[in-house]
């Protein structure tokens, strides 16, 4: 009984430490004062400042546009890449492509950022929206491939063969058989790419140049100047968004699982007929 208590205490402590900073931020966003160490009263003041800060709002919009666009393009290219890796006949080609795919997954952000900066400068590409968008697409593609590829591998080869036997063209096989089967993987890939893009700081910091900014970069430059409770207000809103994203992802996962279960059941029923 005593052991049980100690272990629960330990877990409680871990959870408290994990969540304390987050709730601390949220708590002080309602401070009427300007500091994060003395709570002098409740107010919505910092939220009002945030909502009337047109620079911050345009940065939020920039961040969202970058995230939506980059994950969309990365999903398209990544899915095509996953199909390509899947259809590679030689094992060496397949493994080679996979290793190249994973280079950006394991490289530290600083390396990705620095090497992209050299790359853009080398090409004479000006830094700003374009370079940030291209960088986000670039580091999101391997995530999409890694989410889609297992789904393609799960697809029984006999299904594809059956489609061809029944006279489907390769386009029809792709759109009527393969793509519907891997849709959950594609959605998961899009979702992961989206969150990676929203969260990225280091790569963006290197390739952003002057004038263009995303949320992470803006928070960094404000945090360097010290405490600014407008950032706290922003963090509360972002916490709520993250929470919604997690719930969405969780539901998506369950939806996928259910659909998968249903498909398995349907297949079993057909086989048993």
């Amino acid at each position: 009984m005593k052991k049980w208590r100690i272990s629960n205490l330990y877990l409680a402590l871990v959870f408290i430490v994990l969540y304390l900073p987050i709730f601390y931020l949220i708590f002080y966003s309602f401070n009427v004062g300007d500091t994060m160490d003395h709570f002098s009263g409740f107010s919505w003041r910092h939220y009002a400042t945030l909502l009337s800060d047109s620079r911050m709002i345009s940065i939020v919009l920039n961040t969202l546009i970058i995230a939506l666009l980059s994950s969309l393009i990365a999903t398209i290219v990544g899915t095509m890449g996953a199909l390509g890796i899947y259809s590679a006949k030689k094992a060496t080609v397949k493994n080679g492509l996979l290793s190249l795919n994973n280079v950006l997954m394991v490289s530290p952000d600083v390396i990705i950022g620095a090497s992209f900066l050299i790359f853009f400068t080398f090409l004479g590409f000006s830094l700003g929206f374009g370079s940030v968008l291209l960088s986000h697409i670039a580091f999101s593609i391997p995530i999409v491939v890694l989410m889609v590829l297992p789904k393609i591998n799960e697809l029984p080869k006999t299904m594809v063969d059956a489609a061809y036997d029944l006279g489907a063209s390769s386009w029809q096989t792709l759109t009527k058989v393969i793509l519907p089967a891997i849709t959950p993987g594609i959605f998961a890939g899009y979702f992961m790419a989206f969150t990676y893009s929203l969260d990225d700081f280091a790569v963006t910091f290197f390739v952003t140049g002057n004038g263009f900014s995303t949320l992470s970069v803006e928070i960094y430059s404000r945090a360097r100047q010290g405490v600014d409770l407008e950032v706290n207000a922003l963090s509360t809103l972002m916490f709520i968004v993250s929470l919604l994203l997690v719930v969405g992802y969780y539901l998506l996962g369950r939806y996928n699982q259910n659909r998968r279960l249903q498909r398995v059941k349907a297949a079993e029923a057909k086989i048993n007929q």
């Binding site: 994990l18 002080y28 929203l198 992470s216 928070i219 950032v231």
Partner: peptide, 16 residues
């Protein structure tokens, strides 16, 4: 907590 922006979590510690 890993879904919360990294910068915000770090920023919290400046106050704490």
């Amino acid at each position: 907590p890993t879904w919360i922006n990294l910068l915000l979590k770090t920023y919290a510690f400046i106050g704490l």
